[in-house]
Design a protein around this nucleic acid. Sequence first.
DNA 1: ATTAACTGCTTAATCGTTCAAGCGACGGGA
DNA 2: TCCCGTCGCTTGAACGATTAAGCAGTTAAT
Lengths: 353, 353
Amino acid sequence: MAQGVQGRVTLKDVAARVGISPAAVSMALSGRSRISAATVEQVKAAAAELGYVPSSAAKALRNQRSGVIAVIVPNSTQHVFGHSYFMQVLTGVSSAANERDLQVLVSTSASEASGLTAYERVMRSRTADGAIVTSSAIGDPNIERLTAGGLAVVLIGNYPELPGTTSVGIDDVAASRMVTEHLIEVHGKRSLLHVTGPLDHQTAVDRREGFLDAVRAHGLLAASDVVEGDFSERAGYDALDGRRLGADGFDGVVFANDDMAFGGLQLLRRTGLSVPGDVAVVGFDDFGLSRITDPGITTVHVPAEQMARLAAERLIPRIEDPTAAPTRDDLEVSLVLRESCGCAREDVVLLRN
Amino acid sequence: MAQGVQGRVTLKDVAARVGISPAAVSMALSGRSRISAATVEQVKAAAAELGYVPSSAAKALRNQRSGVIAVIVPNSTQHVFGHSYFMQVLTGVSSAANERDLQVLVSTSASEASGLTAYERVMRSRTADGAIVTSSAIGDPNIERLTAGGLAVVLIGNYPELPGTTSVGIDDVAASRMVTEHLIEVHGKRSLLHVTGPLDHQTAVDRREGFLDAVRAHGLLAASDVVEGDFSERAGYDALDGRRLGADGFDGVVFANDDMAFGGLQLLRRTGLSVPGDVAVVGFDDFGLSRITDPGITTVHVPAEQMARLAAERLIPRIEDPTAAPTRDDLEVSLVLRESCGCAREDVVLLRN
DNA sequence: ATTAACTGCTTAATCGTTCAAGCGACGGGA
DNA sequence: TCCCGTCGCTTGAACGATTAAGCAGTTAAT
């Protein structure tokens, strides 16, 4: 097998080898037409021998389908969401794509050169047949432009303002309520602080709402407070800096993600407060960090990889028919109990391997 | 701008709008031919108005160049190297690619279906013009098949057995010697254990060699030992399990990466040994984890993102001429001092933001 | 005045694949 | 014997872009 350095092997070469027309070779390989079994055999042998691999460009041009799906990360979120999240998304999309012989393109949408965003170019040039868009801000006009153009797009996250789009996510409100209630009901916390994400992201809004639901339901609204963060470690640190914490202040902090919780943990350690003794802490996401810290952070496990895989599975039929009725999937989350809330440390469990 | 749901806008449409031939439109947009300034203006206006974006498939077919570079992760390493490493690679490659209007394809090379690996298909089908291959095992035949086929490939890592290939990496031997000597010279450790990575990876072999160089140079070979790991957290844990550690055993452990060091830290904590008091620990990589743990792990910072960026920059000219003389780049590493070796904790520095 | 050179476009070929339509040859039915 | 159907392939067009070659028309040079 294998061809030398220079010429690519095309259908023509295989055809010449067998002594038939290129079209016949195409038919023999696709099996979509009436070709004798003997010829099919010969063609397959010749193709293998010459190392024939069809040109993806020619295929794409002819079929009007590239076999590529794009994973789009709006630049605004490049550092907002951590590396782990994105890797999980990539892993999920890749595994679904591989099963269907699709390639995965990563578009980090850098500059908005020439009026079109990088990912609008990717779509309109048909470099990709469809796209999975992660975590863009509320009201990002680019998403609507993509879907309005009839392109196959699936969003990861919640986009209540875009009812016509297909998306996959979790119920952030319920999850945030759940973790907040854990602090209240199981650990008896009475004065809670919530550190939000950037409030131009629906995720941050929803997690705040879940927090407020919980404190209201338990009559703790007056003793609680909310401060805006941006999902960064520093924001978590700064949010607690200078606050009354512990016995005569907040006895529990609900962070909208684990990065901020880790930042908060650092401030608490520096000020000499014990976690969970003086202040209980919970986070959100469970993308890796929360298991590593000391104490480990009690958090809500967000199944990012599964979300991404499902997003890819929802996307693929939409490539055939982008006008199909939109769907919405909510995945289950789970509470992961570690030490930062006051739950006992389970025996060390190695999760990685 | 923008076109409706259905038809893509092609050169023909722009041509019809302006009243000239498609060829003239192509020339006007590329600026590579003699076209009057007035016509160029009209063409640009029409193209913008219609929302014309050239078909990447047609372009690729005609130019014999797809404008895509592939980042290849051999499946054997999917879980060996952590998520962070791969993300840094992706970020580095993407930023270099974006500057040149290239797209980035991620190939995780799942199954070896039909005799060709997934990434050999990607290359031979010209889905990608070139590839960046990360961390494959020693003697992986696929790499040689790719480069021998005259395809543009740049490797990240060290491949002494493949002298004809272009690669970007670090000097693992020197780096490992450096961190080992830190334990010996600065902290006075006298009995060292080294936990290697999988020895079918050159990185693991080189780091072991650097360790051995250092202990030999200081006459500590007899008091030292080497045990094979696989870069996983569990391997680090298991490597220390049941060993004589502390006063009457090893007083320092050099792990070939941070994940294993973290595993080791967990065993040490469980056995009640203090780090660095009883046993000093160092790791390797600094991909994120080592900053989070408690104590923080003293480690060698590997500039993964820079390596990847440079790899992309080396790759791009090779796409034009894959037979160009191969190059080798070694990037600088640095020692990152944290607490696990016995160095004082610097004031908390928030590195993320 | 004649030729040469240049300008600004058009024509046509090409990249490699797919697929509808066509076309001999052969077999079966009437 | 004639006709029709089927088989197994070939022909040719198309996907959308690029580019070499060509060709009127104008300008410059001799």
